[in-house]
Design a protein around this nucleic acid. Sequence first.
DNA 1: AGCGTACGACAGCGCAGTTGACGTAGTACA
DNA 2: TGTACTACGTCAACTGCGCTGTCGTACGCT
Lengths: 235, 235
Amino acid sequence: MSERVVPEPQRRRRRPTKQGVVLSQELIVDTALRLVGQHGAEALTVRRLGAALGADPSAVYRYFHSTDDLLLALAEELIARAQQGWEPTGDWRADLREIGLRIHAGYRSHPQAALLAAHRTTGRAHEIAAVEAILGILRTAGFPDPEAVRIYHAFVDQSLGFAVLDAAALALPAAAQSADLRVWQASYARLDAEAHPHIAATAHLLAADMGRSGYPFALDLLLDAAEARLAAARR
Amino acid sequence: MSERVVPEPQRRRRRPTKQGVVLSQELIVDTALRLVGQHGAEALTVRRLGAALGADPSAVYRYFHSTDDLLLALAEELIARAQQGWEPTGDWRADLREIGLRIHAGYRSHPQAALLAAHRTTGRAHEIAAVEAILGILRTAGFPDPEAVRIYHAFVDQSLGFAVLDAAALALPAAAQSADLRVWQASYARLDAEAHPHIAATAHLLAADMGRSGYPFALDLLLDAAEARLAAARR
DNA sequence: AGCGTACGACAGCGCAGTTGACGTAGTACA
DNA sequence: TGTACTACGTCAACTGCGCTGTCGTACGCT
Protein backbone atom coordinates (compact mmCIF):
# COMPACT_ATOMS: atom_id res chain seq x y z
CA MET A 1 0.00 0.00 0.00
CA SER A 2 1.74 3.11 -1.21
CA GLU A 3 1.14 6.67 -0.17
CA ARG A 4 -1.88 8.44 -1.52
CA VAL A 5 -0.48 9.66 -4.80
CA VAL A 6 -3.72 11.03 -6.13
CA PRO A 7 -4.07 14.59 -4.85
CA GLU A 8 -6.84 14.83 -2.28
CA PRO A 9 -7.57 18.57 -2.68
CA GLN A 10 -10.07 19.23 -5.39
CA ARG A 11 -8.89 18.92 -8.94
CA ARG A 12 -8.69 21.92 -11.15
CA ARG A 13 -8.76 20.63 -14.68
CA ARG A 14 -11.98 19.07 -15.83
CA ARG A 15 -12.27 17.70 -19.29
CA PRO A 16 -15.45 15.86 -20.28
CA THR A 17 -15.13 12.30 -21.53
CA LYS A 18 -16.00 11.36 -25.09
CA GLN A 19 -19.54 10.84 -23.93
CA GLY A 20 -19.64 14.25 -22.33
CA VAL A 21 -19.42 13.26 -18.67
CA VAL A 22 -17.36 15.31 -16.22
CA LEU A 23 -15.78 12.93 -13.75
CA SER A 24 -15.20 13.47 -10.05
CA GLN A 25 -14.61 11.39 -6.96
CA GLU A 26 -18.22 11.85 -5.86
CA LEU A 27 -19.65 10.86 -9.22
CA ILE A 28 -17.51 7.72 -9.29
CA VAL A 29 -18.49 6.72 -5.76
CA ASP A 30 -22.17 7.33 -6.44
CA THR A 31 -22.05 5.37 -9.67
CA ALA A 32 -20.23 2.50 -7.96
CA LEU A 33 -22.83 2.33 -5.19
CA ARG A 34 -25.62 2.41 -7.76
CA LEU A 35 -23.96 -0.43 -9.67
CA VAL A 36 -23.67 -2.58 -6.54
CA GLY A 37 -27.19 -1.77 -5.46
CA GLN A 38 -28.72 -2.63 -8.81
CA HIS A 39 -26.70 -5.61 -9.96
CA GLY A 40 -25.05 -7.07 -6.87
CA ALA A 41 -21.58 -6.85 -5.45
CA GLU A 42 -20.01 -8.88 -8.22
CA ALA A 43 -21.06 -6.28 -10.77
CA LEU A 44 -18.55 -3.82 -9.33
CA THR A 45 -15.57 -4.08 -11.65
CA VAL A 46 -13.43 -1.29 -12.98
CA ARG A 47 -14.45 -2.11 -16.51
CA ARG A 48 -18.17 -2.06 -15.79
CA LEU A 49 -17.74 1.02 -13.68
CA GLY A 50 -16.08 2.75 -16.61
CA ALA A 51 -18.92 1.76 -18.88
CA ALA A 52 -21.53 2.97 -16.39
CA LEU A 53 -19.69 6.27 -16.08
CA GLY A 54 -19.37 6.70 -19.82
CA ALA A 55 -15.59 6.80 -19.59
CA ASP A 56 -12.57 4.61 -20.19
CA PRO A 57 -12.09 2.20 -17.28
CA SER A 58 -8.58 3.42 -16.67
CA ALA A 59 -9.89 6.91 -15.98
CA VAL A 60 -10.95 5.64 -12.55
CA TYR A 61 -7.28 5.38 -11.62
CA ARG A 62 -6.92 9.15 -11.93
CA TYR A 63 -9.15 9.43 -8.86
CA PHE A 64 -8.34 6.28 -6.84
CA HIS A 65 -5.11 4.28 -6.95
CA SER A 66 -6.80 0.92 -6.84
CA THR A 67 -10.08 -0.77 -6.21
CA ASP A 68 -9.01 -1.07 -2.57
CA ASP A 69 -8.86 2.70 -2.42
CA LEU A 70 -12.23 3.02 -4.11
CA LEU A 71 -13.80 0.58 -1.65
CA LEU A 72 -12.49 2.63 1.27
CA ALA A 73 -14.24 5.63 -0.23
CA LEU A 74 -17.42 3.59 -0.56
CA ALA A 75 -17.13 2.62 3.10
CA GLU A 76 -16.81 6.25 4.13
CA GLU A 77 -19.83 7.17 2.02
CA LEU A 78 -21.91 4.40 3.55
CA ILE A 79 -20.98 5.56 7.03
CA ALA A 80 -22.05 9.05 6.08
CA ARG A 81 -25.40 7.85 4.74
CA ALA A 82 -26.06 5.74 7.82
CA GLN A 83 -25.74 8.82 10.01
CA GLN A 84 -27.78 11.09 7.77
CA GLY A 85 -30.82 12.46 9.50
CA TRP A 86 -30.13 10.65 12.73
CA GLU A 87 -30.56 12.33 16.08
CA PRO A 88 -29.93 10.72 19.46
CA THR A 89 -33.03 10.42 21.63
CA GLY A 90 -31.15 10.11 24.91
CA ASP A 91 -32.28 6.52 25.48
CA TRP A 92 -28.98 4.69 25.00
CA ARG A 93 -30.56 1.39 24.22
CA ALA A 94 -32.93 2.73 21.60
CA ASP A 95 -30.16 4.84 20.10
CA LEU A 96 -27.75 1.94 19.77
CA ARG A 97 -30.44 -0.24 18.28
CA GLU A 98 -31.26 2.38 15.68
CA ILE A 99 -27.59 2.84 14.75
CA GLY A 100 -27.05 -0.89 14.54
CA LEU A 101 -29.98 -1.37 12.21
CA ARG A 102 -28.79 1.53 10.06
CA ILE A 103 -25.25 0.18 9.74
CA HIS A 104 -26.55 -3.28 9.00
CA ALA A 105 -28.99 -2.06 6.37
CA GLY A 106 -26.43 0.17 4.73
CA TYR A 107 -23.68 -2.39 4.42
CA ARG A 108 -26.02 -5.24 3.60
CA SER A 109 -26.20 -4.07 0.02
CA HIS A 110 -22.46 -3.45 -0.17
CA PRO A 111 -20.66 -6.47 1.27
CA GLN A 112 -17.24 -5.77 -0.17
CA ALA A 113 -17.22 -2.38 1.48
CA ALA A 114 -18.35 -3.99 4.73
CA LEU A 115 -15.45 -6.42 4.62
CA LEU A 116 -13.02 -3.58 4.23
CA ALA A 117 -14.64 -1.24 6.71
CA ALA A 118 -14.51 -3.76 9.48
CA HIS A 119 -10.74 -3.78 9.71
CA ARG A 120 -9.53 -0.82 7.77
CA THR A 121 -9.74 2.73 8.89
CA THR A 122 -10.53 5.55 6.55
CA GLY A 123 -9.60 8.19 9.08
CA ARG A 124 -12.01 10.61 7.49
CA ALA A 125 -14.70 12.81 8.92
CA HIS A 126 -17.76 10.58 8.87
CA GLU A 127 -15.97 7.56 10.28
CA ILE A 128 -14.63 9.62 13.15
CA ALA A 129 -18.07 11.07 13.79
CA ALA A 130 -19.60 7.60 13.95
CA VAL A 131 -17.01 6.35 16.44
CA GLU A 132 -17.50 9.44 18.55
CA ALA A 133 -21.28 9.04 18.50
CA ILE A 134 -21.32 5.39 19.52
CA LEU A 135 -18.69 5.81 22.21
CA GLY A 136 -20.57 8.86 23.43
CA ILE A 137 -23.80 6.93 23.83
CA LEU A 138 -22.05 4.21 25.81
CA ARG A 139 -20.03 6.51 28.06
CA THR A 140 -22.87 8.87 28.90
CA ALA A 141 -25.04 5.83 29.61
CA GLY A 142 -22.58 5.06 32.39
CA PHE A 143 -20.40 2.28 31.03
CA PRO A 144 -16.87 2.43 32.44
CA ASP A 145 -14.33 3.22 29.71
CA PRO A 146 -12.82 -0.25 29.20
CA GLU A 147 -16.28 -1.82 29.05
CA ALA A 148 -17.51 0.88 26.68
CA VAL A 149 -14.67 0.20 24.26
CA ARG A 150 -15.23 -3.55 24.34
CA ILE A 151 -18.95 -3.20 23.78
CA TYR A 152 -18.26 -0.71 21.01
CA HIS A 153 -16.12 -3.25 19.19
CA ALA A 154 -18.57 -6.10 19.69
CA PHE A 155 -21.44 -3.90 18.54
CA VAL A 156 -19.77 -2.66 15.37
CA ASP A 157 -18.29 -6.00 14.37
CA GLN A 158 -21.56 -7.78 14.98
CA SER A 159 -23.48 -5.48 12.68
CA LEU A 160 -20.79 -5.67 10.01
CA GLY A 161 -20.48 -9.43 10.30
CA PHE A 162 -24.19 -10.02 9.90
CA ALA A 163 -24.29 -7.55 7.04
CA VAL A 164 -21.56 -9.43 5.20
CA LEU A 165 -23.24 -12.78 5.65
CA ASP A 166 -26.67 -11.46 4.70
CA ALA A 167 -25.26 -9.70 1.69
CA ALA A 168 -23.53 -12.87 0.54
CA ALA A 169 -26.84 -14.69 0.72
CA LEU A 170 -28.62 -12.00 -1.25
CA ALA A 171 -25.89 -11.99 -3.87
CA LEU A 172 -26.31 -15.68 -4.63
CA PRO A 173 -27.80 -16.33 -8.03
CA ALA A 174 -31.42 -17.47 -7.86
CA ALA A 175 -30.46 -20.85 -9.24
CA ALA A 176 -28.08 -21.49 -6.34
CA GLN A 177 -30.75 -20.55 -3.83
CA SER A 178 -33.28 -22.95 -5.25
CA ALA A 179 -30.61 -25.65 -5.47
CA ASP A 180 -29.89 -25.17 -1.77
CA LEU A 181 -33.57 -25.37 -0.98
CA ARG A 182 -33.75 -28.68 -2.80
CA VAL A 183 -30.68 -29.97 -0.96
CA TRP A 184 -32.20 -28.86 2.30
CA GLN A 185 -35.48 -30.59 1.71
CA ALA A 186 -33.77 -33.73 0.52
CA SER A 187 -31.34 -33.89 3.45
CA TYR A 188 -32.86 -32.26 6.49
CA ALA A 189 -36.58 -32.48 6.21
CA ARG A 190 -36.51 -36.25 5.75
CA LEU A 191 -34.13 -37.16 8.56
CA ASP A 192 -35.48 -39.84 10.82
CA ALA A 193 -36.47 -38.76 14.27
CA GLU A 194 -34.33 -41.39 15.97
CA ALA A 195 -30.93 -40.40 14.67
CA HIS A 196 -31.58 -36.66 14.76
CA PRO A 197 -34.35 -35.96 17.24
CA HIS A 198 -33.53 -32.27 17.72
CA ILE A 199 -33.56 -31.43 14.03
CA ALA A 200 -36.73 -33.42 13.54
CA ALA A 201 -38.44 -31.54 16.35
CA THR A 202 -37.56 -28.11 15.00
CA ALA A 203 -37.46 -28.74 11.26
CA HIS A 204 -40.53 -26.61 10.65
CA LEU A 205 -39.03 -23.75 12.67
CA LEU A 206 -35.68 -23.97 10.91
CA ALA A 207 -37.43 -23.89 7.56
CA ALA A 208 -39.42 -20.81 8.53
CA ASP A 209 -36.25 -18.96 9.47
CA MET A 210 -34.35 -19.78 6.30
CA GLY A 211 -33.45 -16.67 4.40
CA ARG A 212 -34.47 -14.25 7.10
CA SER A 213 -31.73 -12.21 8.75
CA GLY A 214 -31.10 -13.04 12.36
CA TYR A 215 -29.49 -9.67 13.00
CA PRO A 216 -32.27 -7.85 14.84
CA PHE A 217 -32.59 -10.75 17.28
CA ALA A 218 -28.82 -10.98 17.79
CA LEU A 219 -28.70 -7.23 18.32
CA ASP A 220 -31.35 -7.49 21.03
CA LEU A 221 -29.33 -10.21 22.75
CA LEU A 222 -26.26 -7.96 22.74
CA LEU A 223 -28.25 -5.04 24.13
CA ASP A 224 -29.77 -7.29 26.82
CA ALA A 225 -26.33 -8.36 27.94
CA ALA A 226 -25.01 -4.82 27.87
CA GLU A 227 -27.93 -3.60 29.97
CA ALA A 228 -27.30 -6.31 32.55
CA ARG A 229 -23.64 -5.36 32.79
CA LEU A 230 -24.53 -1.71 33.16
CA ALA A 231 -26.85 -2.53 36.03
CA ALA A 232 -24.12 -4.62 37.65
CA ALA A 233 -21.55 -1.85 37.25
CA ARG A 234 -23.87 0.69 38.85
CA ARG A 235 -24.52 -1.55 41.83
CA MET B 1 -26.20 -24.17 -10.59
CA SER B 2 -26.55 -27.49 -12.41
CA GLU B 3 -26.89 -30.93 -10.91
CA ARG B 4 -23.82 -32.64 -9.57
CA VAL B 5 -22.42 -34.12 -12.74
CA VAL B 6 -19.26 -35.44 -11.18
CA PRO B 7 -19.98 -38.94 -9.85
CA GLU B 8 -19.94 -39.02 -6.07
CA PRO B 9 -19.18 -42.75 -5.66
CA GLN B 10 -15.51 -43.41 -5.64
CA ARG B 11 -13.69 -43.34 -8.90
CA ARG B 12 -12.22 -46.45 -10.34
CA ARG B 13 -9.54 -45.29 -12.71
CA ARG B 14 -6.50 -43.68 -11.18
CA ARG B 15 -3.74 -42.50 -13.38
CA PRO B 16 -0.87 -40.56 -11.82
CA THR B 17 -0.15 -37.07 -13.12
CA LYS B 18 3.04 -36.25 -14.94
CA GLN B 19 4.60 -35.54 -11.59
CA GLY B 20 3.47 -38.87 -10.21
CA VAL B 21 0.63 -37.73 -7.98
CA VAL B 22 -2.57 -39.74 -7.70
CA LEU B 23 -5.46 -37.32 -7.34
CA SER B 24 -8.58 -37.72 -5.24
CA GLN B 25 -11.24 -35.49 -3.71
CA GLU B 26 -9.62 -35.75 -0.29
CA LEU B 27 -6.18 -34.86 -1.58
CA ILE B 28 -7.55 -31.84 -3.40
CA VAL B 29 -9.48 -30.61 -0.36
CA ASP B 30 -6.49 -31.10 1.92
CA THR B 31 -4.18 -29.31 -0.47
CA ALA B 32 -6.64 -26.44 -0.87
CA LEU B 33 -6.90 -26.00 2.90
CA ARG B 34 -3.13 -26.08 3.22
CA LEU B 35 -2.82 -23.43 0.52
CA VAL B 36 -5.30 -21.13 2.24
CA GLY B 37 -3.71 -21.70 5.62
CA GLN B 38 -0.22 -20.95 4.42
CA HIS B 39 -0.74 -18.12 1.96
CA GLY B 40 -4.11 -16.61 2.76
CA ALA B 41 -7.51 -16.90 1.18
CA GLU B 42 -6.49 -15.10 -1.98
CA ALA B 43 -3.95 -17.80 -2.75
CA LEU B 44 -6.72 -20.28 -3.45
CA THR B 45 -7.04 -20.27 -7.23
CA VAL B 46 -7.54 -23.23 -9.50
CA ARG B 47 -4.24 -22.53 -11.21
CA ARG B 48 -2.25 -22.37 -7.98
CA LEU B 49 -4.10 -25.37 -6.65
CA GLY B 50 -3.09 -27.31 -9.73
CA ALA B 51 0.52 -26.29 -9.25
CA ALA B 52 0.44 -27.25 -5.56
CA LEU B 53 -1.04 -30.61 -6.47
CA GLY B 54 1.49 -31.26 -9.20
CA ALA B 55 -1.23 -31.50 -11.83
CA ASP B 56 -2.77 -29.48 -14.58
CA PRO B 57 -5.28 -26.97 -13.15
CA SER B 58 -8.08 -28.35 -15.27
CA ALA B 59 -7.72 -31.73 -13.60
CA VAL B 60 -9.51 -30.27 -10.59
CA TYR B 61 -12.69 -30.09 -12.66
CA ARG B 62 -12.76 -33.86 -12.89
CA TYR B 63 -13.51 -33.91 -9.15
CA PHE B 64 -15.52 -30.68 -8.60
CA HIS B 65 -17.50 -28.88 -11.20
CA SER B 66 -16.59 -25.40 -10.08
CA THR B 67 -14.80 -23.53 -7.36
CA ASP B 68 -18.17 -23.07 -5.69
CA ASP B 69 -18.43 -26.82 -5.44
CA LEU B 70 -14.92 -27.08 -4.08
CA LEU B 71 -15.63 -24.44 -1.46
CA LEU B 72 -18.69 -26.35 -0.28
CA ALA B 73 -16.45 -29.36 0.20
CA LEU B 74 -13.98 -27.21 2.15
CA ALA B 75 -16.85 -26.01 4.33
CA GLU B 76 -17.91 -29.56 5.08
CA GLU B 77 -14.34 -30.52 5.92
CA LEU B 78 -13.95 -27.57 8.27
CA ILE B 79 -17.18 -28.50 10.04
CA ALA B 80 -15.82 -32.00 10.46
CA ARG B 81 -12.53 -30.77 11.89
CA ALA B 82 -14.28 -28.42 14.31
CA GLN B 83 -16.17 -31.34 15.80
CA GLN B 84 -13.22 -33.70 15.93
CA GLY B 85 -12.43 -34.88 19.42
CA TRP B 86 -15.19 -32.85 20.99
CA GLU B 87 -17.39 -34.27 23.70
CA PRO B 88 -20.24 -32.43 25.44
CA THR B 89 -19.69 -31.91 29.15
CA GLY B 90 -23.36 -31.40 30.00
CA ASP B 91 -22.87 -27.75 30.96
CA TRP B 92 -24.73 -26.08 28.12
CA ARG B 93 -22.97 -22.77 28.49
CA ALA B 94 -19.48 -24.22 28.50
CA ASP B 95 -20.36 -26.53 25.62
CA LEU B 96 -21.70 -23.73 23.44
CA ARG B 97 -18.69 -21.59 24.23
CA GLU B 98 -16.33 -24.33 23.20
CA ILE B 99 -18.18 -25.00 19.96
CA GLY B 100 -18.28 -21.29 19.15
CA LEU B 101 -14.55 -20.91 19.66
CA ARG B 102 -13.89 -23.98 17.53
CA ILE B 103 -16.04 -22.78 14.64
CA HIS B 104 -14.50 -19.33 14.83
CA ALA B 105 -10.98 -20.67 14.89
CA GLY B 106 -11.60 -23.09 12.06
CA TYR B 107 -13.18 -20.68 9.65
CA ARG B 108 -10.90 -17.83 10.58
CA SER B 109 -8.20 -19.26 8.38
CA HIS B 110 -10.65 -20.00 5.58
CA PRO B 111 -12.85 -16.96 5.06
CA GLN B 112 -14.18 -17.82 1.64
CA ALA B 113 -15.48 -21.11 2.93
CA ALA B 114 -17.04 -19.28 5.87
CA LEU B 115 -18.85 -16.90 3.57
CA LEU B 116 -20.32 -19.78 1.64
CA ALA B 117 -21.08 -21.93 4.66
CA ALA B 118 -23.10 -19.23 6.32
CA HIS B 119 -25.87 -19.29 3.77
CA ARG B 120 -25.43 -22.43 1.77
CA THR B 121 -26.15 -25.87 2.96
CA THR B 122 -23.96 -28.82 2.16
CA GLY B 123 -26.53 -31.29 3.39
CA ARG B 124 -23.79 -33.74 4.23
CA ALA B 125 -23.07 -35.74 7.32
CA HIS B 126 -20.86 -33.43 9.35
CA GLU B 127 -23.03 -30.38 8.80
CA ILE B 128 -26.10 -32.26 9.94
CA ALA B 129 -24.24 -33.56 12.98
CA ALA B 130 -23.22 -30.03 13.95
CA VAL B 131 -26.76 -28.69 13.69
CA GLU B 132 -28.04 -31.62 15.70
CA ALA B 133 -25.41 -31.09 18.41
CA ILE B 134 -26.01 -27.36 18.85
CA LEU B 135 -29.79 -27.68 18.82
CA GLY B 136 -29.49 -30.56 21.23
CA ILE B 137 -27.50 -28.53 23.72
CA LEU B 138 -30.06 -25.74 23.62
CA ARG B 139 -33.15 -27.93 23.85
CA THR B 140 -31.89 -30.13 26.66
CA ALA B 141 -30.82 -26.98 28.50
CA GLY B 142 -34.49 -26.10 28.58
CA PHE B 143 -34.91 -23.48 25.86
CA PRO B 144 -38.36 -23.64 24.27
CA ASP B 145 -38.15 -24.71 20.63
CA PRO B 146 -38.72 -21.35 18.93
CA GLU B 147 -36.19 -19.68 21.23
CA ALA B 148 -33.71 -22.49 20.69
CA VAL B 149 -33.88 -22.08 16.93
CA ARG B 150 -33.46 -18.32 17.12
CA ILE B 151 -30.49 -18.59 19.45
CA TYR B 152 -29.04 -21.29 17.24
CA HIS B 153 -29.11 -18.96 14.26
CA ALA B 154 -27.70 -16.02 16.17
CA PHE B 155 -24.96 -18.19 17.62
CA VAL B 156 -23.85 -19.71 14.33
CA ASP B 157 -24.06 -16.48 12.35
CA GLN B 158 -22.19 -14.57 15.01
CA SER B 159 -19.26 -16.96 14.98
CA LEU B 160 -19.18 -17.06 11.19
CA GLY B 161 -19.49 -13.29 10.88
CA PHE B 162 -16.61 -12.62 13.24
CA ALA B 163 -14.56 -15.30 11.54
CA VAL B 164 -15.06 -13.66 8.17
CA LEU B 165 -14.11 -10.22 9.44
CA ASP B 166 -11.11 -11.49 11.37
CA ALA B 167 -9.94 -13.53 8.41
CA ALA B 168 -10.21 -10.50 6.16
CA ALA B 169 -8.00 -8.58 8.57
CA LEU B 170 -5.44 -11.37 8.68
CA ALA B 171 -5.40 -11.59 4.89
CA LEU B 172 -4.42 -7.95 4.51
CA PRO B 173 -0.89 -7.48 3.27
CA ALA B 174 1.46 -6.25 5.93
CA ALA B 175 1.91 -2.99 4.05
CA ALA B 176 -1.81 -2.24 4.27
CA GLN B 177 -1.82 -2.90 8.01
CA SER B 178 1.02 -0.51 8.68
CA ALA B 179 -0.60 2.05 6.39
CA ASP B 180 -3.76 1.83 8.45
CA LEU B 181 -1.79 2.19 11.64
CA ARG B 182 -0.24 5.37 10.30
CA VAL B 183 -3.64 6.69 9.24
CA TRP B 184 -5.00 5.87 12.66
CA GLN B 185 -2.25 7.65 14.49
CA ALA B 186 -2.47 10.64 12.20
CA SER B 187 -6.25 10.93 12.42
CA TYR B 188 -7.48 9.57 15.71
CA ALA B 189 -4.70 9.88 18.22
CA ARG B 190 -4.31 13.59 17.56
CA LEU B 191 -7.95 14.63 17.69
CA ASP B 192 -8.57 17.50 20.01
CA ALA B 193 -10.44 16.69 23.17
CA GLU B 194 -13.04 19.39 22.61
CA ALA B 195 -14.47 18.23 19.31
CA HIS B 196 -14.19 14.53 20.12
CA PRO B 197 -14.12 14.07 23.87
CA HIS B 198 -15.17 10.41 23.87
CA ILE B 199 -12.50 9.32 21.42
CA ALA B 200 -9.89 11.36 23.24
CA ALA B 201 -10.81 9.74 26.55
CA THR B 202 -10.55 6.20 25.20
CA ALA B 203 -7.88 6.55 22.53
CA HIS B 204 -5.41 4.47 24.51
CA LEU B 205 -7.99 1.72 24.99
CA LEU B 206 -9.00 1.71 21.33
CA ALA B 207 -5.36 1.45 20.32
CA ALA B 208 -4.77 -1.47 22.66
CA ASP B 209 -7.70 -3.37 21.13
CA MET B 210 -6.68 -2.82 17.53
CA GLY B 211 -6.06 -6.06 15.73
CA ARG B 212 -7.38 -8.27 18.51
CA SER B 213 -10.51 -10.27 17.79
CA GLY B 214 -13.55 -9.20 19.75
CA TYR B 215 -15.21 -12.57 19.25
CA PRO B 216 -14.70 -14.16 22.66
CA PHE B 217 -16.18 -11.10 24.36
CA ALA B 218 -19.12 -10.94 21.95
CA LEU B 219 -19.70 -14.64 22.50
CA ASP B 220 -19.84 -14.13 26.24
CA LEU B 221 -22.39 -11.36 25.77
CA LEU B 222 -24.57 -13.68 23.71
CA LEU B 223 -24.30 -16.43 26.31
CA ASP B 224 -25.15 -13.96 29.08
CA ALA B 225 -28.29 -12.91 27.28
CA ALA B 226 -29.26 -16.50 26.54
CA GLU B 227 -28.81 -17.47 30.17
CA ALA B 228 -31.03 -14.62 31.30
CA ARG B 229 -33.74 -15.65 28.87
CA LEU B 230 -33.52 -19.23 30.03
CA ALA B 231 -33.99 -18.14 33.63
CA ALA B 232 -36.96 -16.03 32.60
CA ALA B 233 -38.53 -18.90 30.68
CA ARG B 234 -38.16 -21.25 33.64
CA ARG B 235 -39.77 -18.80 35.98
C1' DA C 1 -5.51 -59.76 -24.99
C1' DG C 2 -8.27 -56.33 -26.15
C1' DC C 3 -11.92 -52.96 -25.45
C1' DG C 4 -14.20 -49.04 -23.54
C1' DT C 5 -13.66 -45.21 -20.94
C1' DA C 6 -12.06 -42.31 -17.09
C1' DC C 7 -8.91 -38.95 -16.51
C1' DG C 8 -4.89 -35.92 -17.19
C1' DA C 9 -2.92 -32.53 -20.45
C1' DC C 10 -3.25 -28.87 -23.66
C1' DA C 11 -4.86 -24.82 -25.92
C1' DG C 12 -7.78 -21.16 -25.71
C1' DC C 13 -11.98 -18.06 -24.52
C1' DG C 14 -13.68 -14.01 -22.07
C1' DC C 15 -13.03 -11.11 -18.27
C1' DA C 16 -10.57 -9.24 -14.37
C1' DG C 17 -7.07 -5.35 -12.33
C1' DT C 18 -3.48 -2.51 -13.46
C1' DT C 19 0.12 0.19 -16.04
C1' DG C 20 2.70 3.33 -19.25
C1' DA C 21 2.66 6.12 -23.25
C1' DC C 22 0.38 9.62 -25.69
C1' DG C 23 -2.07 13.66 -27.04
C1' DT C 24 -5.32 17.14 -26.11
C1' DA C 25 -7.88 20.46 -23.65
C1' DG C 26 -8.17 23.41 -19.82
C1' DT C 27 -5.81 26.75 -16.58
C1' DA C 28 -2.67 30.28 -15.27
C1' DC C 29 0.14 33.94 -15.93
C1' DA C 30 2.36 37.42 -19.01
C1' DT D 1 -4.51 37.53 -26.23
C1' DG D 2 -0.87 34.33 -26.34
C1' DT D 3 1.86 30.66 -24.61
C1' DA D 4 3.52 27.15 -21.66
C1' DC D 5 2.29 23.70 -18.45
C1' DT D 6 0.08 19.79 -16.94
C1' DA D 7 -4.09 17.26 -15.50
C1' DC D 8 -6.79 14.02 -17.36
C1' DG D 9 -9.08 10.93 -20.73
C1' DT D 10 -7.83 7.33 -24.00
C1' DC D 11 -5.46 3.51 -25.95
C1' DA D 12 -3.04 -0.75 -25.98
C1' DA D 13 -1.16 -4.33 -23.61
C1' DC D 14 0.40 -7.38 -19.68
C1' DT D 15 -0.64 -10.82 -16.27
C1' DG D 16 -3.71 -13.88 -14.02
C1' DC D 17 -8.33 -15.57 -13.26
C1' DG D 18 -12.36 -19.45 -13.95
C1' DC D 19 -13.74 -22.49 -17.10
C1' DT D 20 -14.43 -25.48 -21.54
C1' DG D 21 -13.66 -28.66 -25.49
C1' DT D 22 -10.61 -31.78 -27.48
C1' DC D 23 -7.46 -35.32 -27.60
C1' DG D 24 -4.63 -39.24 -26.44
C1' DT D 25 -3.41 -42.60 -23.25
C1' DA D 26 -3.25 -45.93 -19.67
C1' DC D 27 -6.11 -48.18 -16.58
C1' DG D 28 -9.47 -51.90 -15.22
C1' DC D 29 -12.73 -55.23 -16.72
C1' DT D 30 -14.10 -59.20 -19.20
